[in-house]
Design a binder for these strands. Structure first.
Length: 283
DNA sequence: GGGATTGTTTAAAT
DNA sequence: GATTTAAACAATCC
């Protein structure tokens, strides 16, 4: 469930730790997490230097020397953990935080350090793409704008003439990049907008409040180290605390922190959706 | 063992 | 054709 704030924190951490390091070895425990030919992936990353690590949408992108990009999508339960040089590595994969039963990949760097890709659910994946391949990859190419770098004029335009429910569009990575179930529900609550409202029924003022709410929620989550209600941890294995500030997500049936009304749980765009019928009325 | 979990893709419907 | 919705899929936990 890492969404924009969690992926951003991971990418920033890895940028600090991995910049300038050279990939010396890669151990593959679960080949299916690699998209494309596995041996080619291994060959491509071998001896490459990490130039920089950043986030785009929910993707972690590690820029390597000679124009290659190591891309990760963490999906629900993916983790990217950094281990410094003095970490003991247990290749038997038993009861060890660095290499355990969740471990799918282990990168070994020079100077000695490790990057461990763990993923309980095995939905996460990685691929190695040239700059050109990355630009032409449909998922990457079609990503919508970054919510934190968006101006109010451009925001309303994203929804112009669209009848789909506002939450479905917030979750659509082609409309807006990086938003998932948590931050969609939380920002709609803060903006006082019912998640099932057709986008074309919203007024200019609604879009203004929605972008303010969205950016406020994302920034607060970033400040608090992300949401760790399940298994998210940053690149050092540390939990965030934004889950302690959820207003609606995962709180169906409990009372609204603002007005006391019982929060409702419905399905929108195939996903569990919680909202306050009083603070977010249908209009 | 069925249901819930989620982000994304694909197919079907409008 | 474009847009929208629903179903399918990945694997695991409870």
């Amino acid at each position: 469930m890492p969404e924009l704030p969690e992926v951003e924190i991971i990418a920033q951490g890895l940028n600090n730790f991995l910049q300038g390091l050279v990939i010396r070895d890669l151990t593959i425990y679960y080949p299916k997490c690699i998209q494309g030919p596995v041996q080619e992936y291994k060959k491509q990353v071998q001896s490459k230097e990490v130039l920089e690590v950043h986030r785009r949408g929910k993707l972690v992108i590690m820029r390597l020397s000679t124009g290659l990009n190591l891309v990760f999508h963490l999906k629900m339960t993916g983790k990217l953990l950094f281990f410094a040089q003095d970490t003991r590595v247990d290749h038997t994969r038993v009861n060890h935080t660095c290499v355990n039963h969740q471990t799918r990949l282990l990168f070994c760097f020079q100077p000695r350090a490790y990057l461990c890709f763990q993923d309980l659910r095995k939905f996460g994946y990685t691929c190695c793409l040239t700059d050109q391949e990355l630009q032409h990859w449909p998922f990457y190419r079609d990503l919508g704008p970054e919510p934190l770098q968006l101006h109010h004029d451009d925001f309303a335009a994203l929804f112009k003439g669209r009848r789909a429910r506002i939450k479905a569009l917030l979750l659509d990575q082609k409309v807006l990049a990086g938003i998932g179930n948590i931050y969609a529900d939380e920002s709609l609550f803060l903006a006082g907008i019912h998640p099932a409202t057709p986008a074309d029924q919203l007024k200019e003022n609604d879009f203004f409040r929605l972008l303010v709410a969205l950016q406020r929620v994302l920034r607060k989550a970033l400040d608090l180290g992300g949401s760790s209600f399940s298994d998210y941890v940053n690149s050092l294995g540390e939990r965030g605390s934004f889950q302690d500030h959820f207003q609606v997500y995962g709180r169906g049936g409990r009372s609204c922190k603002h007005c006391g009304t019982s929060l409702e749980r419905i399905r929108v765009a195939g996903r569990s959706t919680v909202f306050c019928p009083r603070c977010q009325p249908v209009r």
